[in-house]
Amino acid sequence: MESYRAAVAQMNSQPDFNYNLEQAYEEVRKAAKGGARLVALPENFVFLGSLEARMEQAEEIGKRTPDFLKDTAQEFGIYLLGGSYPTPAGNGKVYNCSLLVDPEGKTLARYNKIHLFDVELPEGESYRESDYVESGKNRPVVSRAGEIGNIGMSICYDLRFPELYRSLTERQADVLCVPSAFTATTGRDHWKPLLRARAIENTAYVLAPAQTGTHGKKRTTHGHSLIVDPWGEVLADAGKEVGIATAVIDPSRLKEVRRRIPSLDHRKIF
């Protein structure tokens, strides 16, 4: 693996599949034009709206989104992470699926979100992801993607479960991807500290593309798509606006941090 530029795309996805595809394409185009070799899109990048509309469109979304990712990756000659999108699970629910494709349009890895967001937040804000999403039953997923390193897959709420990321680094992940639609309520206090913690404790790069702003009538997300290095330094922050943030993924930096603090070699509990 050699040094390369990575980009995290920050989007304001809506309940309009075609609009969201156009927005995603434009962000990928800008990132590729800026020299990004790996571009990561956020959770729910093709649809962020009501449960009813999501379920009605899940079959179409599940069919068209992989084609969009493959065609776009081929067009720009990049590795492309489709943060997540709904795809039918065959039991009346959907998987929250993340797909990584290579510059030839080949699928390198598929990950279905394991941890589902069932929470009660202040001021009556609540979410029940398990009402419509089937938890992924697969093991932690690491793609051995050659020139861009070993890519560990996760989605949003997974961020709160450090054992998943330790499992990814046990499988030799160099870069941990956390595409998200983090709520504004929790994002203010938890988003950056959790991402920095996952980077520090696993001495790995973290790519966290995110949603921002208001989606439909009720949902508001935090923004601040980040790229964090293995020391926990925030290399890039997209702020609150739609756009991209980029940084260089440097294997020599990864080796340096793991040499200075070889905590992965000092573990006593497995």
Results as ranks from 00 to 15, higher is better:
D71G: 06
Q74W: 10
F76W: 03
G77W: 03
L80F: 06
L81P: 09
L81I: 14
G82L: 03
S84N: 08
Y85E: 02
Y85M: 03
P86A: 01
P86D: 02
A89Y: 01
A89R: 02
N91Q: 05
G92L: 02
Y95W: 04
N96Y: 04
N96F: 04
L100Q: 06
L100W: 04
K106Y: 11
K106M: 11
A109V: 05
A109Y: 04
Y111R: 08
K113N: 11
E120C: 09
L121F: 00
L121C: 00
P122L: 10
E123L: 10
G124N: 08
E129I: 00
S130W: 00
S130C: 00
Y132S: 10
V133D: 04
G136F: 00
G136C: 05
N138S: 14
N138G: 14
R139I: 09
R139P: 11
P140V: 08
V142P: 07
S143H: 01
R144Q: 12
R144D: 12
A145V: 09
E147Y: 12
M153R: 09
I155A: 09
I155T: 12
R160D: 13
R160N: 13
L164Y: 04
Y165A: 09
Y165S: 07
Y165H: 07
R166L: 14
R166F: 13
T169C: 12
T169W: 03
A173K: 00
D174Q: 13
V175N: 09
C177I: 05
P179D: 07
P179V: 11
S180A: 14
A181W: 12
A181K: 10
